[in-house]
Simulated assay, not measured.
Amino acid sequence: METTISRLSATEKALDIIYQLENKYGELMFYQAGGCCEGTQPQCFEKGGFFPRMNDAMIGTINGHEFWIDRDLFEYWKYSHFTLDVTDGFGPGGFSLETPLGKTFKVHYRLFTKEEYEHLEPVKRSE
C-alpha cells in the first residue's frame, strides 16, 4: 500500500493554542489569504466564520480543523509543505481568534522532495 504525504503539520506550540481556542469556541477553521489587509498569515475562525472563495484549496486538517488557502497562493506554494506555528505578538488585521491571547499564527514552508511531491494527499477545492 502506498503512503500519502501530508501537505500540512503543526508545531506543539501551535497545537497548544488550538486546544485553548477549541475549548473556548468549539470547531475551528483556518484560512490563509494571498495578501492585502490580512497579509499572508493564516487566520483562525470559528468553523463557518469565513467562506472560502471558488477554487480555494483545502490542503489538510489540523486536529480535525480544515486549513484553506487562497487559490492563487496555493498555485505559488503547491510545491511546499506548510508547518503551522505560533509566535508572540499581533499579526496583520487582528481578525484571527488567537489575537486576544497576544499570539499570531504563522507558517514555515519547505519544498517537497520529488518523491514526496509524487505521493501527496489530494487537495479539496471549494465550489
Rank of each mutant, 00 (worst) to 15 (best):
K47W: 06
C36A: 11
I62G: 03
K47P: 00
N63F: 07
T61H: 09
I59A: 15
G48Q: 02
G49C: 04
G49D: 07
K47T: 09
I69R: 12
F50A: 03
I69D: 11
F51R: 06
N63Q: 11
A57P: 01
G48M: 02
C44I: 01
T40R: 06
A57K: 14
F45V: 03
W68K: 09
P42F: 05
C36Y: 07
H65E: 14
I69S: 14
G39T: 00
P52V: 01
R53Y: 08
I62F: 08
R53E: 10
D70I: 08
K47N: 10
E66H: 11
G39P: 00
A57M: 09
G48H: 00
F45I: 05
A57L: 04
T40A: 10
C37P: 00
G60C: 06
P42H: 03
G39F: 01
A57W: 08
R53P: 00
D70V: 08
D56M: 02
K47E: 12
W68Q: 08
N55H: 08
E46P: 02
G39Y: 00
G49I: 03
R53F: 05
F51V: 13
R53H: 12
E38F: 01
T61D: 15
N55M: 08
F51K: 04
K47S: 13
T40L: 07
G48E: 09
I62C: 10
H65A: 14
I62Q: 06
F45L: 02
C44F: 02
I69G: 05
D56E: 05
C37T: 02
G60Q: 14
Q41W: 08
M54L: 09
C36Q: 03
G60E: 12
W68T: 05
F67R: 14
G49R: 01
N55E: 10
P52M: 04
F67M: 14
I69Y: 07
F50S: 02
W68P: 13
W68Y: 11
C36E: 03
M54E: 10
M58I: 13
N55I: 03
I59N: 15
F51P: 00
I59F: 12
F50G: 05
C37K: 07
R53C: 07
E46R: 11
N63C: 12
G39K: 00
